[in-house]
Amino acid sequence: MISSLEILIPKNLNEALSLLVERKNNCRIIAGGTDVVPGLQQGSNRFANSELLIDINRIPEIKSITQTREKISIGGAETFSDMLQNQIVKEELPLLWKACSTIGSVQIRNRATIAGNFVNNAPCADTVPALLVYNATIEVESLSSKKEISIGEFLTGPYKTKLNKDEIVTRINIPIPSKEFRGDFYKLGRRRAVAISRITLAVLTKTQNHMIDEIRIASGAVTPIGIRFSDLEKLAKGKYADDKFLKLLSQKLGEQILNVTGLRWSSEYKLPVVQQMFYQLLKEIEHG
């Protein structure tokens, strides 16, 4: 149960960042509240010393989706519903759009935000594999600094990121992928809606006459954090994408996951399934 907390709703970014500096050690950011409120309610240790919640839902700088020639920029406090309704996201970033559509329920998607999905770096964060294959960069601001780093760099370890206590994820910037890329996002859960991910995969490929020009592969929920598989991507570059190779690539993905994750209680199920479903995904992309 929550026993005592102040909530402030800054109207602009500067105000929010100032609050973070002033109230350094005892404040937390709240956006959708889908993670924070149950955590507070259940007396989770993560919120043990929180005295102030900063609601960032009304900061215009982090609430918009914009497009330039090279990139799409999504405000950190954009909700999944906003992203799903956005034509730019739907057309240019179909994997991210699909990942958003598989998250929670309408009620959750109406509140939960894109930055909120990955700032605590839970292994099952559904947007992460899509952001990884899109080479997304994360814009982070504090009162005194502004930096932009790749999502892969930002996510440092299970439940750990590069975000400092005085910083806010302001924008997620995604270079517009070339039209030659084809790809898909895959999610497996225990039921067909409102399910925690058991496995997520995102793949983007560019092929010419079945020759792999470029492939980007990322997973979530099967590794301690969502990751890109650059070794596999290098291996695949320039290879002829016949059935035999797609199977090999799937086996290699299994090996990589095993290396990164080690054997866990769920490996006996997840390892064969991730190889099979990665193979299915590659075949499906191949056939358009």
Partner: peptide, 12 residues
């Protein structure tokens, strides 16, 4: 051997 055999892949 957690890596599956080539012959075990399921055709779509």
């Amino acid at each position: 051997s957690p890596i599956i055999n080539e012959s075990q892949f399921i055709s779509p």
